[in-house]
């Protein structure tokens, strides 16, 4: 086992543990936005797709790189925008409505 692999596995395991702990008690109204938010985060695969494109040098690898970058870019931009829209809707609905106090 190389040193690189060992440190990669270490990082992976610790990140999994962080992932298990980072969201604790979540109100069920936040489930869908949270799913959408994590969905946007895995759009980080765009980094990998861009790196693949930087070493492409024949027709097949250009096609693969094009599709991979386009897919990942769609995942990133769409993911964050749609999450923001969901949360915007959520906040507006939760804005405190001014209630007239009726006291006898």
């Amino acid at each position: 086992m190389s040193e690189q692999l060992l440190s990669d596995v270490t990082v992976f395991v610790l990140a999994v543990l962080v992932g298990f702990e980072v969201i604790g008690k979540v109100p069920s109204t936040l489930h869908t936005p949270l799913m959408s938010g994590t969905n946007a985060i895995h759009g980080v695969v765009l980094v990998g797709a861009v790196l693949i494109a930087s070493t492409a040098d024949d027709a097949l690898s250009y096609v693969l790189a094009f599709v991979a970058v386009a897919f990942a870019a769609m995942n990133v931009t769409g993911g964050y925008v749609v999450t923001d829209r969901m949360l915007g809707m959520f906040r507006r609905r939760r804005d405190p409505v001014p209630v007239k106090e009726q006291r006898p």
Partner: peptide, 8 residues
């Protein structure tokens, strides 16, 4: 990021 999303 991948591990984080996988676990959460």
């Amino acid at each position: 990021a991948g591990a984080l999303v996988g676990a959460s």
